[in-house]
Structure formats: C-alpha cells, structure tokens
C-alpha cells in the first residue's frame, strides 16, 4: 500500500498547476524513497522531472514500487476542491486503478475524499547524468518570470548569455529588440532577492520563449529559481519545493539547421 501525507495541500496544488499545461499526463513513480515523475511535452523538446522525497512528507509509506498514470488536468480538478491549508493524504492499494486524495481542514471539521482514476501510460525513462554546468544562475523566481514574460512581447526566442558581466537575455522581433541583463547581486539582505552567478566559462544559448514562460508557472512554489547552462545542452530551470524536493524543467536549445 501507498500512503503519503502533506500538511498543506497548497504545495501539491501549485505543483500540478506548474505541470499540467506542459505535460498532460505522466506516471507518478512511487517507491520507499518518495514520489518521482519524468514526462516530456508532446513535441519532446522539453522534459519535466519531479522528485518529492519521503522524508519531506509528514507521513510516507510505500510497501511496493508503483507507477501511477495520472492525467494532470483531472488531478488539478480534484485539487481545486482542496483548501490551501488542508492536510492532504494520497492513498492507493497495491496495483490499484485509482488514487484516493483525502483533504482535511485545519480544525478537522471537514473531511473529503476523491478517487482519481489512474491511467496506463507507457513512458520511457531517460537517464539524466549529474554534470557540471558552464554557468549556474540563481535568481528571484519572480524576476525570471518577469523577464521571460516581458521578452515575449518582443520576440519568440531568447538568447541567454552568461558572462562575467552577468546574465543577459536578448530577443528581437518585428517591432525591435530587447536586452535585459542581471548582474551578480548579493546586496539584498534577503537571500531570496539575491542573484548569484556561478560562471565556469561564458556560454550563450537560444531558447523558445514559449517554453521558458511555461516553466514560470512554477513561480508560486518558491522565491528562487536556478538556471543551469552548458553549450549545446538543454537548459535546466529548477524550482525547489521547500524541504520536499524539486521540479526541474529541461529545454533543448535552438540550433541552426
């Protein structure tokens, strides 16, 4: 049997909102070490990985590894019925064809349960090696969201270049061009408002803004985002989910044909 309890439904609500447009369905792989997900968008140019560690849950039990095929739009519908402050418990019997979600209000005077039908989803797992990146940039997630949103009004793609001067986002379109540069900045007292640029070597890559915008749907999860860049490799846009784990978005760079 599988059972996982989170003290705040808001975390799961935000996670599913962050994923559901990019990947319509995927497998929650549950094991004694937690819940993980790997899913590609329909065009296979981006990949989402999610890791929620068992020790980040208030209670976590998984007797047997399981793959639970989930339609995220449907999961989102159910999670909309949970209050942000509700405690949420996910439950499934071994080999079950449904996932039970139980919501309890903070003072435990309202308890609801919803069963989500599970799907059979064939999915391939990709091996993602740990690697050193040419540039790793941590910045406020709201800043990232604003940059990619603002640039979308000017162009379809963005050239992201990291140098010792900072990280620069450039785009151009019919109406003109735009450049936004963020400098390494540890002045703000709050760490969440700082920008850290860890540069091993300068790197510049071009990406579709549409996807980078989509990743920004994860902004409500956490105040900081990390971008990892290496020449000719997918960018990694990572949002930590408190002590629970993280969601990572990988996007292939644009290449000249």
């Amino acid at each position: 049997m599988f059972e996982a309890r989170l003290p705040q439904a808001a975390v799961l609500k935000k996670l599913v909102e962050a994923l559901k447009e990019l990947v319509t369905e995927g497998n929650f792989d549950v094991s004694p070490s937690g819940i993980s997900l790997q899913a590609m968008d329909s065009s296979h140019v981006c990949l989402v990985t999610l890791q929620l560690n068992d020790d980040g849950f208030e209670h976590f039990r998984c007797d047997r590894n399981m793959s639970m095929g989930i339609h995220f739009g449907n999961l989102s519908k159910i999670l909309k019925c949970a209050g942000n402050e509700d405690t949420i418990t996910l439950k499934a019997e071994d080999n079950a064809d449904q996932l039970t979600l139980m919501f309890e209000s903070a003072n435990q005077d309202r308890i609801s349960d919803f069963d989500l039908k599970l799907m059979s989803i064939e999915s391939e797992h990709l091996g993602i090696p740990d690697q050193d990146y040419s540039a790793e940039v941590k910045m406020p997630s709201a800043e990232y969201q604003r940059i990619v949103r603002d640039l979308t009004s000017m162009g379809d793609t963005v050239l992201v270049s990291a140098t010792k001067e900072g990280i620069k986002f450039s785009t151009s379109g019919d109406i003109g061009t735009a450049n936004i540069t963020l400098r390494h900045n540890t002045t703000p007292e709050k760490e969440d408002e700082q920008t850290h640029i860890d540069l091993k070597e300068p790197v510049a890559l071009t990406f579709a803004l549409r996807y980078l915008n989509n990743f920004a749907k994860a902004t409500p999860l956490t105040p900081q985002v990390k971008l990892s860049l290496t020449k000719d490799l997918p960018v990694v846009v990572e949002y930590k989910v408190g002590e629970l784990g993280q969601v990572r978005f990988f996007l292939a760079p644009k290449i000249d044909d």
Binding site: M40, H44, E124, L126, I128, P129, T206, K254
Partner: peptide, 14 residues
C-alpha cells in the same frame, strides 16, 4: 530556421 532536438537526443533511454 532554427530547430530543436528531441530530449532523447541528449539523454539516453534507461
């Protein structure tokens, strides 16, 4: 025109 490779071009199937 610029294209994009599939994720499977970067990461190997397990």
């Amino acid at each position: 025109a610029a294209g994009q490779k599939s994720m499977t071009a970067f990461f190997q199937k397990k």
